[in-house]
Design a binder for these strands. Structure first.
Lengths: 336, 336
DNA sequence: GTGTCGGATGTAACCGGATACATCGCGACG
DNA sequence: CGTCGCGATGTATCCGGTTACATCCGACAC
């Protein structure tokens, strides 16, 4: 039997020696350089195939001074929001022959370090809002790396949606179309800049209408489970507000799933709204009134910026209010 | 005014020159080598700080022949399953001072290539089942890379759960405890090995009991939206089976959300089961009967294997049947 | 005074590629 | 027949680190 060869990866010099040519010629063959005469090319290619040679990405990167990689740093990998962001970025990356590397930081005590590591191995970096402190991002940008923030940060190119205005539009719908006056926000404004802006928009409208919040924001995470927790919390408080404005769709879905079991009908007893317009929102019952965000477009734009170079300091993409039934509108779109 | 220095990253040689020492000394300082005399160390450190020098990860990796990075290749980044897998892996990675890089391939025409690229830059690789063809994985492993498959593949170290046995246990519950005889599988068995095993377990029990499938598998994706589609499809067929065995929780949740609206009560008219026991399963209404998988443990084990080295050819982690209400059991856990 | 030893630091090679420039060989042309 | 030009290939250097080994120097012992 053939002795199992220790699978040491051959280097370009191994190939050169074995094929009786110079490393330059091997490199030319791997780059399809037309200057190599067919016969030589064939011979080299044969050796490459036989030895299973593949140029080391590391060596290449060092020499090119480019890694052909785009980095994306996110707080966590859960949730459709980030998946969509990545998809958007991926579409651009594929076009440019670049591969995407993602890191999630929310489990890491050394988040900033992990991202720096990533930055080190990529040509450009997309940092999602809330992944790092502003200082860390600024630091990164200052160290000569191309950084784009999907979210909000002065001094660094950003791609954003106007969450504040979007939330305001949503809340205005609740107030104007449905006459709700006792509104409560669900989500942790201090948890992420996005949530903070949404909360700000929420408060804008209350102020505008001379309303007061029906209680402190319910400071919970942005996941389904937190929605269930929030529902129980509210139920235990006794009296529910007219409407619950949730930080995102998952949170809202958790409430949608839990409130009816506690005897609160939606939207009759209480209206619920989401944010993001994810797949869930359309499936939920009642279907969720929410704000559509062009998340994939954000990702694509950020990717183009991070790879291409010049992006204006700030690009704002439009959102769209999606009125379904959880706010109290009918299937046909009429209020109540 | 100081002319804005072009933010070119200083190299180790820049530091050496500026500090009046050799590159070896600089390297020693960055490694906290005790052989450097304090005074020298201080001087070098000062220059490092002043110029903002950070050793290039690329250069280091090339020299070390290690990247201190663990790669994870997944089909897509959506869905809680993969998020959990990554979390499990991350816990191990953090311990070992290794950073994780993730790539998703489902949007890439050149999936195998993208993963190879990743392999190139990492010390070990976790490939989720269904990400690549078996050939591609074998190829990768053959090229001297440490590869662990989270899923099923002969010839490569695997960490798995026994999806076939788990599915069988689930289906047996439907048949024995609830007396369901007309069962239908929802999901695309050819779509991923996991789904294939689950379908196999499903068929095992049917065969065992002399039952026949109540129709072909509904070959759909594993997401919420597909569940909604499946529900409509079934409704349009007219007569529903006794029980729907779904490929995962998301699919099941989609059905849970859609069937009632079409006039089918769950579990009275039709039982529905999921797979994976994700957060959704507990929140859904009715709460979803499903199979708990130790996904994070899988991730952790795979990471340990990919980083540490020797993992047995195949490690199987136990699953647990989680009986809730969507199968027809009552809250208290009694059948019907 | 000289030999020895050890600690601090420097020199140079190496990791795996890419590539500017040098070299070589050959046909064409004056 | 010498030379020029050009196409094919080789040589050597660089990318940014690490590190085995060499070197230098002062202290100490004899």
């Amino acid at each position: 039997m053939a002795a199992a060869t220790p699978p040491a990866r051959p280097t370009i010099r191994d190939i050169a020696r074995e094929a009786g040519v110079s490393v330059a010629t091997v490199s030319r063959v791997t780059h399809d350089d037309p200057r190599v005469v067919p016969e030589t090319k064939r011979r080299v290619q044969e050796v490459i195939d036989r030895l299973g040679y593949r140029p080391s990405a590391l060596g290449r990167a060092l020499s090119y001074q480019r890694t052909l990689t785009l980095g994306i740093a996110l707080p966590g990998l859960g949730g459709p929001y980030f998946a969509q962001l990545i998809e958007g970025a991926e579409s651009v990356a594929v076009e440019r022959g670049v591969v995407i590397n993602v890191v999630g930081t929310h489990l890491r005590p050394d988040a900033a370090d992990a991202v720096r590591q990533l930055a080190e191995r990529t040509d450009g970096l997309i940092v999602a809002g809330g992944t790092l402190s502003e200082d860390d991002v600024a630091d990164l940008a200052a160290s000569g790396r191309v950084v784009v923030v999907a979210g909000d940060q002065p001094g660094v190119p950003c791609v954003v949606t106007d969450g504040r205005a979007a939330a305001a539009e949503l809340v205005r719908h609740l107030v104007e179309a449905h006459g709700h006056r006792r509104l409560r926000f669900v989500g942790e404004p201090d948890g992420s800049p996005d949530t903070a802006w949404r909360y700000a928009g929420f408060r804008d409208v209350l102020a505008e209408r001379g309303l007061t919040e029906a209680g402190e924001p319910l400071r919970l995470g942005l996941d389904v489970r937190s929605g269930a927790v929030a529902a129980r919390l509210l139920h235990d408080e006794g009296v529910l507000p007219d409407a619950l404005v949730c930080g995102n769709d998952e949170l809202a879905t958790g409430m949608l799933a839990t409130l009816p079991g506690l005897g609160h009908r939606i939207p009759t007893d209480v209206a619920v709204t989401g944010f993001d317009d994810q797949a869930l929102a359309e499936i939920a019952s009642p279907r969720l009134t929410t704000v559509h965000q062009p998340v994939a477009d954000l990702g694509a734009l950020a990717a183009a910026g991070a790879l291409g170079g010049d992006l204006p300091a700030r690009t704002t993409l439009p959102t769209r209010l999606v009125v379904r039934e959880s706010c109290g509108c009918t299937q046909e779109g009429a209020p109540r």
